[in-house]
Structure formats: structure tokens, C-alpha cells
Nucleic acid binder design. Structure first.
Length: 362
DNA sequence: GTAATCAGGACTC
DNA sequence: CAGGAGTCCTGATTAC
């Protein structure tokens, strides 16, 4: 037997947009974007996902809808229907689980599969990849891209290498040839800031990055530097493991335009808190820490939080605490507010299970 | 001195 | 012109 791991990273192509197109064949080959925000019809918000046709115009996730429109007057904007996309996602994840020994869902449209035990040679990789792609296409009418590698990071980078509907298989002996020419930003964990910091030192490609030692990178970037180094040399080795329980839960809403109307803001805070309580009770959680998040019209952000001595799932407790937090901040603030959010953390499962478990560990 | 808590930042999809 | 949800990390402060 072979002890080498074979990891798949499966990534759905333009997931939200593709779901909308599958629901409405008129949208095929059109520049479709799924938008999120306070009023997507009036271009208040951003692009969540752009179809591949839309991408031809330079439209991509994250840009303001108004900019997307300016790039292409023909864009079709669909408001996001996240709960529906979740249903679709669940169906897809069930398919992926079947084909893996170990499974890790990363987000609504991505997952890692450890398929080591099901692979003997290159052909069996191709067979398995094709089977997965076929079943997702037949059952859900959607395409995905798959990256295959000896660890999770290489699989992930590989899945993004050829899209849409691409397959990229990186054997151990091809790691350097694959990674070396890629821009550092390709590495998960290297975002805008880190890219800039590295660029200042003339580091643009992964091959530049690996000239530094691991400790150089750690002193430059902290703990993240160590991870980035391991990925760059192709030796990241984290296991494919099931997702743990959630650690926090919250909601954020933007106002259509910035406001200093305290009544309006507090109404929103209550609304958000209510939604949190609903969800948290439905999922049988309790929380101990509560936070508010405020983004001002100049885009600066303030967060405030406090913790209780005990866990709760009570609306009254939540609302009292978050309103108190808000009042403390807004006493000496005049800036207008653009977005407001409420979040709870330090979660535990409430009721039954907890007691049974604690008995076990007495 | 170390553990919790809090605030802010970076990052991901 | 700048959404929404979530995670991890860091540094400062406070608690034990």
C-alpha cells in the first residue's frame, strides 16, 4: 500500500450565479450577477458572484453594483437567495461525501476530500474526478472545478488554476513546476496587505518567497508566515477533518444611506437581535458573549463586546446588553452610521446533550 | 506570570 | 463606491 495522500478540492463554478442561471434558462450566456446589499435594484450593494460572461467585462465579486453596471449596461442583477443556495449546497455536499474517506466542507461551495484509499494510479484519479463532476452535473445541473494534490493547499490552488469546469492534477514531482511561477497572492492567507508587504521586498512569485527562511517569514508576518511558508514549499500537511461546531453567529445590515437617526438604528439592532435569537434557539445554542459592530460612513469600524458569567439564549438579555454597548459608543459620536451588526459568541449547545456529555466526563 | 477578555485587523468565500 | 457571515490572530488590559 501507498502512504501518500491524495486530496481533492472541489469548488463550484460561480456558484450563486450558476444556480440562478440553472433556474432560468433565459439567463444562459448572459452577464449575470448575484447582488447583495440594502437595495440591489437601485445598485446599492456589491457583486457577490459574477457569471463567467459577466467576468468578460471585468465584473467580479466584491465590486459595487454601480461599477458593474457601468462596465456592462446589459447586466442582469439577481438578488441573492442564500437559503436556497444552501439547500443546493447540501445536495452537492452529500454527493461529495459519498466519494471520500474523509470530508471537510469549507464553505457553501467548497470542500476537501481525502480519497487516498480509493486511488491506486493516475487513471483512478481521473475516473473519480469525472464521476464526481458527472453526478453533480446530472443531479444539480451545475459544474465545478477540481484540484488534486498531495495536500490540501496544493489541491486548493490547483482547483483555481483552471476554471470553469477545470481539472488540475498535481503529482508530487510537479509541485515546484506548478507553484514556482504563481503570484504570492495565490496562496490562501495572502491577501492585499500581505501581498503589498511582500512586494516591498521584491517578493512577487512563490519562487521568490521560498528563498526566505521560515523564521524570516514568521518574523515578518507572525504566525501566518509559518503557514504561508509551508504552503509555498509544498509541505503543508493539515488533515482533512469534519467541520467543528460554529463559534459565533451574527447579522450585519447596511442602511441605504448613512444615518444618525438613533431610533432607526436601534430598531435595526432589535431586528438583528431578534433574528439571532430565533436562529440560536432553533439550533439549540446558548451564548455568553455579545458584540456590536458599527461601520461609519468614512468606512472606519468599531466593535464593542461584553460577556456574561453564564450562558443564555434570552432575547431580553441580548437586547439590553447590545443597546448598552451602542449607547456607550454613540454618546460621544457624531459620525453617521452606514452598517450595524450584532453578533454572539462563546457558544455552547444548550439542554440535554450537554448534561449527558458532562456525566460521561465526571 | 498566566489566563481571560476586549478591540481591531486581515482574510476567505 | 464600498455586502454579509465567519474564523483566526495579535496586542493591550484586566483578573486570578
Amino acid at each position: 500500500m501507498n502512504s501518500k495522500r491524495v486530496i481533492f478540492h472541489v469548488d463550484m463554478d460561480a456558484f450563486y450565479a450558476s444556480v440562478e442561471i440553472r433556474e432560468n434558462s433565459d439567463l444562459e450566456n448572459k452577464p449575470v450577477v448575484v447582488g447583495v446589499g440594502p437595495n440591489v435594484e437601485k445598485f446599492k450593494g456589491v457583486v457577490s458572484t459574477a457569471s463567467y460572461k459577466a467576468r468578460e467585462y471585468g465584473i467580479k465579486a466584491g465590486i459595487p453594483l454601480i461599477q458593474a453596471y457601468n462596465k456592462c449596461k446589459d447586466i442582469v442583477i439577481m438578488p441573492a437567495r442564500i437559503s436556497y443556495y444552501k439547500e443546493v449546497s447540501n445536495n452537492i455536499m452529500e454527493i461529495l461525501k459519498k466519494y471520500s474517506d474523509k470530508f471537510q466542507q469549507i464553505s457553501i461551495d467548497e470542500a476537501y476530500l481525502d480519497v487516498s484509499k480509493r486511488i491506486e494510479d493516475y487513471d483512478s484519479i481521473e475516473n473519480l474526478v469525472n464521476k464526481i463532476k458527472e453526478e453533480i452535473l446530472n443531479n444539480e445541473g451545475l459544474t465545478c472545478s477540481i484540484g488534486v494534490g498531495p495536500n490540501k493547499s496544493i489541491a486548493k490552488i490547483a482547483s483555481g488554476f483552471k476554471k470553469p469546469s477545470g481539472v488540475t492534477i498535481i503529482n508530487s514531482d510537479k509541485i515546484r513546476k506548478f507553484l514556482d511561477p504563481l503570484p504570492v497572492k495565490t496562496i490562501p492567507g495572502v491577501g492585499k496587505k500581505t501581498k503589498k508587504l511582500l512586494a516591498k521586498r521584491g517578493i512577487e512569485k512563490i519562487k521568490d518567497l521560498i528563498k526566505l527562511s521560515k523564521s524570516d517569514l514568521i518574523s515578518l508576518l507572525g504566525k501566518a508566515g509559518g503557514k504561508i511558508y509551508d504552503i509555498a514549499i509544498g509541505r503543508e500537511s493539515s488533515e482533512v477533518k469534519p467541520r467543528g461546531p460554529r463559534k459565533s453567529l451574527g447579522f450585519i445590515r447596511s442602511f441605504e444611506s448613512s444615518t444618525d437617526d438613533i431610533k432607526k438604528i436601534k430598531e435595526k439592532i432589535k431586528e438583528l437581535s431578534k433574528s439571532i435569537i430565533k436562529k440560536i434557539q432553533a439550533d439549540d445554542f446558548q451564548f455568553r458573549t455579545m458584540s456590536i459592530i458599527i461601520r461609519f460612513d468614512d468606512f472606519s469600524v468599531i466593535t464593542r463586546s461584553n460577556s456574561l458569567t453564564h450562558h443564555t439564549n434570552d432575547y431580553k438579555v441580548l437586547i439590553k446588553n447590545v443597546i448598552d454597548l451602542f449607547d456607550k459608543v454613540y454618546d460621544n459620536e457624531k459620525r453617521k452610521i452606514k452598517r450595524i451588526g450584532v453578533r454572539v459568541s462563546n457558544l455552547t449547545k444548550s439542554s440535554l446533550k450537554q448534561e449527558i456529555l458532562s456525566k460521561y466526563f465526571e
